[in-house]
Computed example of a mutant assay.
Amino acid sequence: MLKPHEREKLINAVVYFASNTEHCGKIKLIKLLYLLDFEHFRQTGRSVTGLDYSAWKLGPVPAAFFQEWEQWQPDFSEAIEIQPERVFDYDLLKVVPKAAFDDSHFTPRELRIMHQLAERFRGERSQPLINFTHDELGPWSKIWDSGRGFNHRIPYMLAIPDSDPHAQVVREFANEQAAIRTALGTSR
Protein backbone atom coordinates (compact mmCIF):
# COMPACT_ATOMS: atom_id res chain seq x y z
CA MET A 1 0.00 0.00 0.00
CA LEU A 2 1.14 3.52 -0.79
CA LYS A 3 2.23 5.19 2.49
CA PRO A 4 3.62 8.65 1.79
CA HIS A 5 4.20 9.76 5.43
CA GLU A 6 3.06 13.27 4.51
CA ARG A 7 2.11 14.27 8.07
CA GLU A 8 5.50 13.18 9.43
CA LYS A 9 7.22 15.03 6.61
CA LEU A 10 5.19 18.18 7.26
CA ILE A 11 6.04 18.19 10.96
CA ASN A 12 9.70 17.50 10.32
CA ALA A 13 9.95 20.09 7.53
CA VAL A 14 8.62 22.63 10.05
CA VAL A 15 11.18 21.47 12.61
CA TYR A 16 13.93 21.65 9.97
CA PHE A 17 13.09 25.18 8.83
CA ALA A 18 12.66 26.39 12.41
CA SER A 19 16.07 24.89 13.30
CA ASN A 20 17.92 26.11 10.22
CA THR A 21 16.60 29.61 9.56
CA GLU A 22 16.28 32.80 11.59
CA HIS A 23 13.03 34.66 12.25
CA CYS A 24 10.95 31.65 11.30
CA GLY A 25 7.42 32.84 11.98
CA LYS A 26 4.12 31.85 10.39
CA ILE A 27 4.55 33.74 7.11
CA LYS A 28 8.15 32.69 6.51
CA LEU A 29 7.31 29.10 7.36
CA ILE A 30 4.30 28.99 5.02
CA LYS A 31 6.42 30.42 2.18
CA LEU A 32 9.20 27.88 2.78
CA LEU A 33 6.71 24.99 2.77
CA TYR A 34 5.17 26.28 -0.46
CA LEU A 35 8.58 26.57 -2.12
CA LEU A 36 9.54 23.09 -0.91
CA ASP A 37 6.33 21.48 -2.17
CA PHE A 38 6.19 23.26 -5.52
CA GLU A 39 9.89 22.85 -6.31
CA HIS A 40 9.75 19.15 -5.47
CA PHE A 41 6.62 18.77 -7.58
CA ARG A 42 8.31 20.60 -10.46
CA GLN A 43 11.13 18.07 -10.35
CA THR A 44 9.25 14.87 -9.54
CA GLY A 45 5.48 15.21 -9.98
CA ARG A 46 4.62 14.98 -6.27
CA SER A 47 4.69 17.30 -3.30
CA VAL A 48 6.56 16.62 -0.08
CA THR A 49 3.95 17.51 2.55
CA GLY A 50 0.72 16.84 0.66
CA LEU A 51 -0.62 20.28 1.59
CA ASP A 52 -3.08 22.01 -0.72
CA TYR A 53 -2.38 25.72 -1.25
CA SER A 54 -4.96 28.42 -1.92
CA ALA A 55 -4.44 31.82 -3.50
CA TRP A 56 -4.87 34.50 -0.85
CA LYS A 57 -3.99 38.17 -1.16
CA LEU A 58 -0.76 37.68 0.78
CA GLY A 59 0.26 34.73 -1.37
CA PRO A 60 -0.10 30.97 -1.42
CA VAL A 61 -1.50 29.62 1.84
CA PRO A 62 -2.01 26.01 2.94
CA ALA A 63 -5.41 26.71 4.54
CA ALA A 64 -5.54 23.53 6.65
CA PHE A 65 -2.10 24.26 8.12
CA PHE A 66 -3.03 27.92 8.61
CA GLN A 67 -6.10 26.88 10.61
CA GLU A 68 -4.15 24.36 12.65
CA TRP A 69 -1.72 27.13 13.62
CA GLU A 70 -4.37 28.37 16.06
CA GLN A 71 -4.74 25.00 17.81
CA TRP A 72 -1.98 22.46 17.18
CA GLN A 73 -2.77 18.79 17.09
CA PRO A 74 -0.82 16.77 19.69
CA ASP A 75 1.81 15.58 17.18
CA PHE A 76 2.66 19.18 16.29
CA SER A 77 2.57 20.30 19.93
CA GLU A 78 5.19 17.69 20.74
CA ALA A 79 7.46 18.91 17.93
CA ILE A 80 7.25 22.72 18.04
CA GLU A 81 6.10 25.68 20.06
CA ILE A 82 5.39 29.28 19.18
CA GLN A 83 7.35 31.86 21.17
CA PRO A 84 7.42 35.64 21.14
CA GLU A 85 10.39 37.29 19.45
CA ARG A 86 11.24 40.98 19.73
CA VAL A 87 12.56 42.32 16.40
CA PHE A 88 13.38 46.01 16.40
CA ASP A 89 10.23 47.56 17.88
CA TYR A 90 7.91 44.73 16.91
CA ASP A 91 6.64 41.77 18.87
CA LEU A 92 6.53 38.78 16.55
CA LEU A 93 6.02 35.06 16.95
CA LYS A 94 8.55 32.47 15.91
CA VAL A 95 8.51 28.71 15.60
CA VAL A 96 10.86 26.96 18.02
CA PRO A 97 11.56 23.23 17.69
CA LYS A 98 10.95 21.04 20.74
CA ALA A 99 11.92 17.83 18.95
CA ALA A 100 14.95 16.89 16.91
CA PHE A 101 14.63 16.76 13.13
CA ASP A 102 13.94 13.23 11.87
CA ASP A 103 15.01 12.67 8.26
CA SER A 104 13.86 9.04 8.11
CA HIS A 105 10.90 9.63 5.76
CA PHE A 106 12.61 12.05 3.38
CA THR A 107 14.29 11.25 0.10
CA PRO A 108 17.74 12.67 -0.66
CA ARG A 109 16.13 15.10 -3.13
CA GLU A 110 13.64 16.35 -0.52
CA LEU A 111 16.46 16.88 1.98
CA ARG A 112 18.54 18.68 -0.64
CA ILE A 113 15.70 21.06 -1.53
CA MET A 114 15.02 21.82 2.15
CA HIS A 115 18.71 22.50 2.70
CA GLN A 116 18.92 24.78 -0.34
CA LEU A 117 15.85 26.76 0.76
CA ALA A 118 17.13 27.10 4.32
CA GLU A 119 20.51 28.28 3.05
CA ARG A 120 19.03 30.74 0.59
CA PHE A 121 16.56 32.30 3.04
CA ARG A 122 18.37 31.64 6.35
CA GLY A 123 18.64 35.22 7.61
CA GLU A 124 15.82 36.72 5.57
CA ARG A 125 12.62 37.98 7.06
CA SER A 126 9.32 37.34 5.29
CA GLN A 127 9.41 40.10 2.65
CA PRO A 128 12.02 38.53 0.31
CA LEU A 129 10.02 35.29 0.40
CA ILE A 130 6.81 37.16 -0.34
CA ASN A 131 8.46 38.79 -3.35
CA PHE A 132 9.72 35.39 -4.50
CA THR A 133 6.38 33.57 -4.18
CA HIS A 134 4.48 36.44 -5.84
CA ASP A 135 6.52 36.12 -9.04
CA GLU A 136 4.32 37.14 -11.97
CA LEU A 137 5.03 33.91 -13.81
CA GLY A 138 4.59 31.68 -10.76
CA PRO A 139 1.68 29.41 -9.82
CA TRP A 140 0.20 31.81 -7.23
CA SER A 141 -0.03 34.76 -9.62
CA LYS A 142 -1.62 32.63 -12.32
CA ILE A 143 -4.44 31.72 -9.95
CA TRP A 144 -4.62 34.99 -7.98
CA ASP A 145 -5.27 36.99 -11.17
CA SER A 146 -5.65 40.39 -9.47
CA GLY A 147 -7.95 38.91 -6.84
CA ARG A 148 -10.33 37.02 -9.14
CA GLY A 149 -8.82 33.74 -7.95
CA PHE A 150 -9.11 34.47 -4.24
CA ASN A 151 -9.18 31.26 -2.21
CA HIS A 152 -8.97 29.06 -5.31
CA ARG A 153 -6.74 26.02 -5.09
CA ILE A 154 -3.31 26.42 -6.73
CA PRO A 155 -2.76 23.31 -8.87
CA TYR A 156 0.67 21.77 -8.46
CA MET A 157 0.81 21.24 -12.22
CA LEU A 158 1.42 24.99 -12.57
CA ALA A 159 4.87 24.41 -11.07
CA ILE A 160 5.95 22.68 -14.27
CA PRO A 161 6.74 25.20 -17.01
CA ASP A 162 5.99 24.14 -20.56
CA SER A 163 9.60 25.01 -21.42
CA ASP A 164 10.92 22.32 -19.08
CA PRO A 165 12.35 19.51 -21.24
CA HIS A 166 10.98 16.93 -18.76
CA ALA A 167 7.55 18.54 -18.38
CA GLN A 168 5.61 15.78 -20.12
CA VAL A 169 7.26 12.96 -18.15
CA VAL A 170 6.73 14.73 -14.81
CA ARG A 171 3.08 15.45 -15.66
CA GLU A 172 2.50 11.82 -16.64
CA PHE A 173 4.04 10.62 -13.38
CA ALA A 174 1.92 13.09 -11.38
CA ASN A 175 -1.23 11.86 -13.13
CA GLU A 176 -0.29 8.22 -12.44
CA GLN A 177 0.26 9.01 -8.75
CA ALA A 178 -3.12 10.75 -8.58
CA ALA A 179 -4.79 7.72 -10.19
CA ILE A 180 -3.15 5.38 -7.68
CA ARG A 181 -4.31 7.52 -4.76
CA THR A 182 -7.83 7.61 -6.16
CA ALA A 183 -7.88 3.84 -6.61
CA LEU A 184 -6.65 3.35 -3.04
CA GLY A 185 -9.10 5.90 -1.68
CA THR A 186 -6.34 8.14 -0.38
CA SER A 187 -6.78 11.07 -2.76
CA ARG A 188 -7.11 14.48 -1.24
Rank of each mutant, 00 (worst) to 15 (best):
K3S: 11
K3Q: 08
H5N: 11
H5R: 12
E6M: 10
L10I: 04
A13H: 02
F17L: 05
F17A: 06
S19W: 11
K26V: 07
I27G: 03
I27H: 04
I27C: 02
I30E: 14
K31V: 09
L32P: 09
L33Y: 06
L33E: 09
Y34E: 05
Y34P: 01
L35C: 05
L35S: 00
F38C: 00
E39V: 09
H40G: 04
R42K: 15
L51R: 00
D52F: 04
W56Y: 12
L58H: 11
P60M: 08
A64W: 00
A64I: 02
F65P: 02
Q67C: 05
Q71G: 02
W72T: 01
Q73T: 12
A79V: 05
E81I: 03
Q83D: 13
P84K: 12
R86C: 03
V87S: 08
Y90N: 08
Y90G: 03
V95Q: 03
V96R: 14
K98D: 04
A100T: 07
D102T: 02
H105C: 10
F106S: 03
T107E: 02
T107M: 02
E110K: 13
R112F: 12
H115S: 13
E119R: 13
F121R: 02
F121G: 03
R122L: 07
R122Y: 10
G123R: 13
S126K: 02
P128F: 12
P128T: 08
L129Q: 04
N131L: 04
F132S: 03
T133I: 05
H134F: 09
H134A: 07
D135F: 12
P139I: 04
W140T: 06
W140D: 03
S141K: 10
S141P: 00
K142L: 13
K142A: 11
I143W: 00
W144S: 02
D145R: 14
G147E: 12
N151A: 10
P155Q: 12
P155G: 13
Y156D: 00
Y156E: 05
M157C: 03
L158M: 12
A159V: 12
P161E: 15
D162C: 02
D164M: 07
P165L: 08
A167T: 06
Q168K: 06
Q168M: 07
V170I: 15
E172Y: 07
E172Q: 14
F173L: 13
F173M: 10
F173H: 14
N175H: 14
Q177E: 13
I180Y: 08
T182D: 13
T182H: 13
A183E: 15
G185I: 07
T186E: 09
S187N: 06
R188T: 15
